[in-house]
Amino acid sequence: MMPAYNVIICHPNRIDGAELSGGAWVESLPLPNMQDRAFARVARTIDLTALSTWFVVTFDRQRTIRAIAIIAHNITTGGRIRIRASDAADFSVVKYDETRDAWPSASADWNIDQLEWENDNYWLGSYSQEDAEGQTPISQRVLPDAVQARYWRVDIIDPANPAGFIDIGRVFIGDVFVNPHINYSYGGSLGYEDATTVQTALSGAEYFDPREPLRVARFQLAHLSHYEAFTQALELTRRAGIWREVLIILDPTDAEFGAVTCFIGRLRQLNPLEQVAWQTNSMAFEVKELR
Protein backbone atom coordinates (compact mmCIF):
# COMPACT_ATOMS: atom_id res chain seq x y z
CA MET A 1 0.00 0.00 0.00
CA MET A 2 1.23 3.47 -0.87
CA PRO A 3 2.26 5.57 2.18
CA ALA A 4 -0.41 8.25 2.42
CA TYR A 5 1.58 11.36 3.32
CA ASN A 6 4.94 10.60 1.72
CA VAL A 7 6.37 12.30 -1.34
CA ILE A 8 5.48 10.87 -4.74
CA ILE A 9 7.48 11.13 -7.95
CA CYS A 10 5.69 9.87 -11.07
CA HIS A 11 7.41 8.76 -14.26
CA PRO A 12 7.26 8.23 -17.21
CA ASN A 13 4.72 10.44 -18.90
CA ARG A 14 3.01 8.15 -21.41
CA ILE A 15 1.00 10.85 -23.17
CA ASP A 16 3.52 11.20 -26.00
CA GLY A 17 3.20 7.57 -27.07
CA ALA A 18 -0.60 7.63 -27.04
CA GLU A 19 -3.27 8.52 -29.59
CA LEU A 20 -5.63 11.36 -28.68
CA SER A 21 -9.20 11.67 -29.94
CA GLY A 22 -12.64 12.99 -29.01
CA GLY A 23 -14.21 16.33 -28.22
CA ALA A 24 -14.21 19.38 -30.48
CA TRP A 25 -11.04 21.45 -30.72
CA VAL A 26 -10.04 24.62 -32.52
CA GLU A 27 -8.33 23.73 -35.79
CA SER A 28 -5.31 25.93 -35.09
CA LEU A 29 -5.06 24.69 -31.48
CA PRO A 30 -5.68 20.96 -31.89
CA LEU A 31 -5.79 18.11 -29.41
CA PRO A 32 -2.22 16.89 -30.17
CA ASN A 33 -0.87 20.12 -28.67
CA MET A 34 -1.27 18.36 -25.32
CA GLN A 35 1.64 16.18 -26.42
CA ASP A 36 3.92 19.18 -26.88
CA ARG A 37 6.19 19.90 -23.91
CA ALA A 38 5.83 23.65 -24.50
CA PHE A 39 2.92 24.43 -22.19
CA ALA A 40 2.10 27.62 -24.06
CA ARG A 41 1.09 25.60 -27.13
CA VAL A 42 -2.35 24.74 -25.79
CA ALA A 43 -5.21 22.65 -27.10
CA ARG A 44 -8.47 24.64 -27.06
CA THR A 45 -12.05 23.47 -27.24
CA ILE A 46 -14.45 25.25 -29.60
CA ASP A 47 -16.91 25.87 -26.75
CA LEU A 48 -17.94 24.65 -23.30
CA THR A 49 -20.58 22.09 -24.22
CA ALA A 50 -20.27 18.52 -22.98
CA LEU A 51 -19.84 17.37 -26.59
CA SER A 52 -16.66 19.43 -26.91
CA THR A 53 -14.81 19.31 -23.60
CA TRP A 54 -13.54 15.74 -23.50
CA PHE A 55 -10.81 13.57 -24.94
CA VAL A 56 -9.70 9.94 -24.98
CA VAL A 57 -6.13 8.71 -24.49
CA THR A 58 -5.59 5.43 -26.34
CA PHE A 59 -2.49 3.31 -25.70
CA ASP A 60 -1.13 0.58 -27.93
CA ARG A 61 -1.89 -1.91 -25.14
CA GLN A 62 -2.84 -1.98 -21.48
CA ARG A 63 -0.74 0.45 -19.48
CA THR A 64 -0.40 0.73 -15.72
CA ILE A 65 -1.58 4.19 -14.65
CA ARG A 66 -1.61 5.64 -11.15
CA ALA A 67 -1.45 9.41 -11.71
CA ILE A 68 -3.17 11.80 -14.11
CA ALA A 69 -2.61 15.55 -14.25
CA ILE A 70 -4.12 18.30 -16.40
CA ILE A 71 -1.48 21.03 -16.69
CA ALA A 72 -1.47 24.68 -17.75
CA HIS A 73 -5.26 24.76 -18.01
CA ASN A 74 -7.80 27.54 -17.64
CA ILE A 75 -10.41 25.53 -15.71
CA THR A 76 -12.09 27.74 -13.12
CA THR A 77 -12.29 27.05 -9.41
CA GLY A 78 -15.84 25.78 -9.98
CA GLY A 79 -14.83 23.26 -12.65
CA ARG A 80 -14.79 19.48 -12.31
CA ILE A 81 -12.96 16.64 -14.04
CA ARG A 82 -14.26 13.14 -14.69
CA ILE A 83 -11.76 10.33 -15.35
CA ARG A 84 -12.69 6.91 -16.72
CA ALA A 85 -10.60 3.88 -17.69
CA SER A 86 -11.62 0.91 -19.80
CA ASP A 87 -10.36 -1.83 -22.08
CA ALA A 88 -13.34 -1.17 -24.37
CA ALA A 89 -13.11 1.69 -26.84
CA ASP A 90 -16.76 2.63 -26.17
CA PHE A 91 -16.27 2.52 -22.37
CA SER A 92 -19.15 0.06 -22.08
CA VAL A 93 -17.31 -1.55 -19.15
CA VAL A 94 -15.17 0.70 -16.98
CA LYS A 95 -12.34 -0.16 -14.61
CA TYR A 96 -12.26 3.28 -13.01
CA ASP A 97 -14.76 6.14 -12.90
CA GLU A 98 -14.48 9.20 -10.68
CA THR A 99 -15.47 12.86 -10.82
CA ARG A 100 -13.50 15.38 -8.76
CA ASP A 101 -13.12 19.12 -8.36
CA ALA A 102 -10.47 20.59 -10.65
CA TRP A 103 -9.27 22.70 -7.72
CA PRO A 104 -9.40 21.86 -4.00
CA SER A 105 -12.75 23.01 -2.64
CA ALA A 106 -14.90 22.90 0.46
CA SER A 107 -13.83 19.29 1.02
CA ALA A 108 -10.45 20.64 2.16
CA ASP A 109 -9.83 21.92 5.69
CA TRP A 110 -10.04 25.60 4.78
CA ASN A 111 -9.94 28.06 7.66
CA ILE A 112 -13.05 30.13 7.00
CA ASP A 113 -11.86 32.70 9.56
CA GLN A 114 -9.01 33.63 7.22
CA LEU A 115 -11.37 34.43 4.33
CA GLU A 116 -12.98 37.83 3.96
CA TRP A 117 -16.70 38.18 3.20
CA GLU A 118 -15.84 39.97 -0.05
CA ASN A 119 -13.51 37.21 -1.27
CA ASP A 120 -14.75 35.38 -4.36
CA ASN A 121 -13.99 32.06 -2.65
CA TYR A 122 -15.77 32.80 0.67
CA TRP A 123 -18.74 30.51 0.03
CA LEU A 124 -16.72 27.79 -1.73
CA GLY A 125 -13.87 27.69 0.76
CA SER A 126 -11.54 27.06 -2.15
CA TYR A 127 -8.80 28.75 -4.13
CA SER A 128 -9.73 32.17 -5.43
CA GLN A 129 -9.10 33.03 -9.07
CA GLU A 130 -6.23 35.28 -7.95
CA ASP A 131 -4.68 32.38 -6.04
CA ALA A 132 -4.91 30.26 -9.18
CA GLU A 133 -3.10 32.84 -11.30
CA GLY A 134 0.64 33.44 -11.35
CA GLN A 135 1.67 29.78 -11.41
CA THR A 136 1.12 26.92 -13.80
CA PRO A 137 -2.34 25.52 -12.95
CA ILE A 138 -2.34 21.77 -12.38
CA SER A 139 -5.18 19.43 -11.51
CA GLN A 140 -3.84 16.05 -10.47
CA ARG A 141 -5.29 12.80 -9.23
CA VAL A 142 -3.36 9.91 -7.73
CA LEU A 143 -5.61 6.87 -8.04
CA PRO A 144 -6.18 4.74 -4.93
CA ASP A 145 -4.69 1.76 -6.79
CA ALA A 146 -2.88 1.34 -10.07
CA VAL A 147 -5.22 0.64 -12.98
CA GLN A 148 -4.25 -1.29 -16.08
CA ALA A 149 -6.26 -0.13 -19.06
CA ARG A 150 -5.84 0.73 -22.71
CA TYR A 151 -8.39 3.57 -22.95
CA TRP A 152 -8.67 6.61 -20.67
CA ARG A 153 -11.34 9.28 -21.03
CA VAL A 154 -11.19 12.74 -19.45
CA ASP A 155 -14.25 15.02 -19.35
CA ILE A 156 -13.91 18.67 -18.34
CA ILE A 157 -17.07 20.05 -16.72
CA ASP A 158 -16.86 23.84 -16.53
CA PRO A 159 -19.90 25.34 -18.32
CA ALA A 160 -19.62 28.74 -16.58
CA ASN A 161 -16.01 29.39 -17.62
CA PRO A 162 -15.95 33.08 -18.65
CA ALA A 163 -13.36 32.36 -21.37
CA GLY A 164 -15.95 30.38 -23.33
CA PHE A 165 -13.51 27.52 -23.95
CA ILE A 166 -11.11 25.13 -22.19
CA ASP A 167 -7.36 25.38 -22.66
CA ILE A 168 -5.02 22.51 -21.79
CA GLY A 169 -1.28 22.89 -22.23
CA ARG A 170 -0.08 19.44 -21.25
CA VAL A 171 -1.32 16.15 -19.82
CA PHE A 172 0.64 13.80 -17.57
CA ILE A 173 -0.53 10.20 -17.41
CA GLY A 174 1.74 7.61 -15.88
CA ASP A 175 2.67 5.49 -12.89
CA VAL A 176 4.09 6.27 -9.46
CA PHE A 177 7.83 5.58 -9.62
CA VAL A 178 9.15 6.75 -6.22
CA ASN A 179 7.09 6.61 -3.03
CA PRO A 180 9.27 5.75 -0.02
CA HIS A 181 7.91 4.16 3.12
CA ILE A 182 9.81 6.74 5.17
CA ASN A 183 9.27 10.29 4.01
CA TYR A 184 11.99 12.80 3.18
CA SER A 185 14.01 14.16 6.09
CA TYR A 186 13.30 17.42 7.89
CA GLY A 187 15.00 20.26 6.10
CA GLY A 188 13.35 19.65 2.75
CA SER A 189 12.47 22.87 0.96
CA LEU A 190 10.10 24.28 -1.65
CA GLY A 191 10.78 27.69 -3.12
CA TYR A 192 10.61 29.89 -6.18
CA GLU A 193 13.44 30.91 -8.46
CA ASP A 194 12.99 34.14 -10.42
CA ALA A 195 14.93 34.50 -13.68
CA THR A 196 13.89 38.14 -14.08
CA THR A 197 16.81 40.18 -15.42
CA VAL A 198 17.64 43.57 -13.92
CA GLN A 199 19.44 46.39 -15.72
CA THR A 200 20.60 49.46 -13.85
CA ALA A 201 20.86 52.84 -15.56
CA LEU A 202 23.63 55.34 -14.80
CA SER A 203 21.08 57.25 -12.73
CA GLY A 204 20.51 54.21 -10.56
CA ALA A 205 17.06 53.52 -11.94
CA GLU A 206 16.38 49.83 -12.44
CA TYR A 207 14.61 48.23 -15.40
CA PHE A 208 13.21 44.72 -15.38
CA ASP A 209 12.53 41.97 -17.89
CA PRO A 210 10.03 40.03 -15.75
CA ARG A 211 9.80 36.25 -15.84
CA GLU A 212 7.39 34.06 -13.93
CA PRO A 213 9.05 32.39 -10.93
CA LEU A 214 9.55 28.62 -11.15
CA ARG A 215 9.21 26.20 -8.25
CA VAL A 216 12.15 24.14 -7.04
CA ALA A 217 11.81 21.30 -4.51
CA ARG A 218 14.83 19.96 -2.63
CA PHE A 219 14.73 17.05 -0.23
CA GLN A 220 16.69 14.06 1.05
CA LEU A 221 15.36 10.50 1.12
CA ALA A 222 17.65 9.34 3.91
CA HIS A 223 16.08 6.01 4.88
CA LEU A 224 15.70 4.04 1.66
CA SER A 225 15.66 0.27 1.80
CA HIS A 226 17.84 -1.57 -0.69
CA TYR A 227 14.75 -2.28 -2.80
CA GLU A 228 13.61 1.35 -2.81
CA ALA A 229 17.13 2.59 -3.42
CA PHE A 230 17.91 0.49 -6.46
CA THR A 231 14.51 -0.04 -8.11
CA GLN A 232 13.10 3.45 -7.44
CA ALA A 233 15.56 6.22 -6.57
CA LEU A 234 18.62 5.16 -8.56
CA GLU A 235 16.56 3.75 -11.43
CA LEU A 236 14.63 7.02 -11.72
CA THR A 237 17.84 8.95 -12.27
CA ARG A 238 18.82 6.54 -15.03
CA ARG A 239 15.49 6.67 -16.81
CA ALA A 240 14.56 10.33 -16.36
CA GLY A 241 17.99 11.90 -16.65
CA ILE A 242 17.94 15.67 -16.34
CA TRP A 243 15.50 16.30 -19.18
CA ARG A 244 12.56 13.91 -19.00
CA GLU A 245 9.41 14.94 -17.16
CA VAL A 246 8.56 13.89 -13.64
CA LEU A 247 5.41 14.74 -11.71
CA ILE A 248 6.22 15.52 -8.09
CA ILE A 249 3.61 15.58 -5.32
CA LEU A 250 5.14 16.52 -1.97
CA ASP A 251 2.04 15.52 0.01
CA PRO A 252 -0.74 13.63 -1.81
CA THR A 253 -3.18 14.22 1.07
CA ASP A 254 -2.77 18.01 1.17
CA ALA A 255 -5.97 19.36 -0.37
CA GLU A 256 -5.47 22.90 0.93
CA PHE A 257 -2.01 23.54 -0.51
CA GLY A 258 -1.80 20.70 -3.01
CA ALA A 259 -1.90 23.03 -6.01
CA VAL A 260 1.32 24.63 -4.75
CA THR A 261 3.19 21.50 -3.67
CA CYS A 262 2.52 19.56 -6.90
CA PHE A 263 4.10 20.38 -10.24
CA ILE A 264 5.64 18.84 -13.34
CA GLY A 265 9.39 19.25 -13.55
CA ARG A 266 12.73 17.60 -14.18
CA LEU A 267 15.61 16.36 -12.07
CA ARG A 268 18.02 19.29 -12.07
CA GLN A 269 20.97 17.02 -11.34
CA LEU A 270 21.57 13.30 -10.88
CA ASN A 271 22.74 12.78 -7.32
CA PRO A 272 24.48 9.59 -6.27
CA LEU A 273 23.01 6.91 -4.04
CA GLU A 274 24.77 6.84 -0.67
CA GLN A 275 24.92 3.90 1.72
CA VAL A 276 24.48 5.38 5.18
CA ALA A 277 24.02 2.19 7.20
CA TRP A 278 23.52 -1.53 6.73
CA GLN A 279 20.63 -2.03 4.28
CA THR A 280 19.92 1.71 4.44
CA ASN A 281 20.57 4.19 1.64
CA SER A 282 20.14 7.88 1.01
CA MET A 283 19.67 10.09 -2.04
CA ALA A 284 19.14 13.83 -2.45
CA PHE A 285 16.65 15.14 -5.00
CA GLU A 286 16.27 18.52 -6.64
CA VAL A 287 13.30 18.97 -8.95
CA LYS A 288 12.87 22.14 -11.01
CA GLU A 289 9.51 23.10 -12.47
CA LEU A 290 9.01 22.97 -16.21
CA ARG A 291 6.89 25.46 -18.09
Score class of each variant (00 low, 15 high):
I65H: 02
D36V: 06
D194C: 05
R170Q: 06
D87R: 01
G188I: 10
T253F: 09
A205N: 10
I112C: 11
A89D: 10
M2V: 13
S107F: 08
R291I: 02
N74Y: 01
L124D: 14
P272G: 03
A69D: 01
A43S: 03
V171S: 10
V287C: 04
P104W: 02
I83D: 07
S139E: 12
Q199I: 12
I182V: 15
D175V: 03
E245Q: 15
N6L: 00
E206H: 14
F230L: 06
T196N: 14
S28C: 15
G188F: 08
W152K: 03
V93T: 09
E206M: 12
A132P: 10
D158H: 00
L250Y: 01
S28P: 13
N121H: 12
Q232S: 08
H73L: 05
A89I: 09
P210S: 00
T77P: 06
C262L: 01
L190A: 07
E116G: 09
D155F: 11
N119K: 11
E289V: 00
G188V: 08
T64M: 13
Y96R: 04
G134P: 07
D167F: 02
Q275Y: 07
L234R: 14
F165A: 01
R215W: 02
L273R: 07
A259G: 05
A67F: 06
S185Y: 05
V94R: 06
V7S: 04
A255Q: 12
R268W: 12
I138P: 03
A259Q: 05
P144R: 14
P180V: 03
R268N: 13
T64V: 11
R218Q: 15
D167Q: 05
W123M: 14
A72L: 01
T136K: 08
V142C: 04
L124C: 13
A108P: 07
V198H: 11
L221D: 02
V198I: 14
D101E: 08
F285A: 04
Q148A: 15
F208Q: 09
R239K: 10
P272W: 01
Q62G: 09
L273G: 08
T49H: 10
Q114S: 09
R84Q: 15
R268S: 12
R82M: 11
R61D: 03
F230E: 07
H226M: 11
F219T: 15
P12Q: 10
F208M: 08
A89F: 04
R61N: 01
F91V: 09
D155K: 07
R239F: 05
A160F: 09
T280L: 06
E274Q: 05
A43P: 00
F91W: 09
V176H: 01
A85G: 07
I15N: 01
G134E: 06
K288I: 11
E228R: 03
F165W: 03
V57S: 01
G78V: 04
D158R: 00
L247F: 13
V276D: 06
S203H: 14
I138Y: 05
R215S: 03
R244C: 14
P213R: 12
N161T: 04
R44F: 03
P180L: 04
P162V: 04
N179A: 04
T196G: 13
W54I: 12
